[in-house]
């Protein structure tokens, strides 16, 4: 598995901070979206989600295109390219 260690600086960054790696973002998803899928958890594990599905869901949360309680507030913290990176990372797990 490829590990991204170098800081990737982006001039187009949404929050004008250094772009985060998919892994660094994903670490903060695992607290709620358990890596060991627990039976009957209302917050689903993201294991097995495709990159496309993850990216679309996150963009829909970010741009308020879907009805949700919490994720819209979380998704707005990331640039579109960061969302793409975290979707890529998670889909490979």
């Amino acid at each position: 598995m490829k590990r991204w260690l170098l800081m990737v600086l982006s001039l187009t960054s949404f929050n004008s901070h250094a772009e985060l790696s998919g892994e660094n973002i994903a670490l903060n998803c695992f607290n709620c979206h358990n890596r060991k899928p627990a039976a009957n958890s209302a917050i689903p594990s993201l294991n097995g989600y495709s990159r496309q599905r993850l990216q679309q869901a996150m963009l829909d949360f970010k741009y308020d295109k879907t009805n949700a309680t919490l994720m819209p507030r979380i998704a707005k913290a990331y640039s579109d390219s960061e969302i793409s990176a975290v979707a890529a990372y998670l889909s490979q797990q």
């Binding site: 991204w4 260690l5 985060l20 790696s21 660094n24 607290n31």
Partner: peptide, 12 residues
Amino acid sequence: QQAISTPNWLNT
């Protein structure tokens, strides 16, 4: 001996 990657934190 590697560069530290850019961190981020989340709280809920």
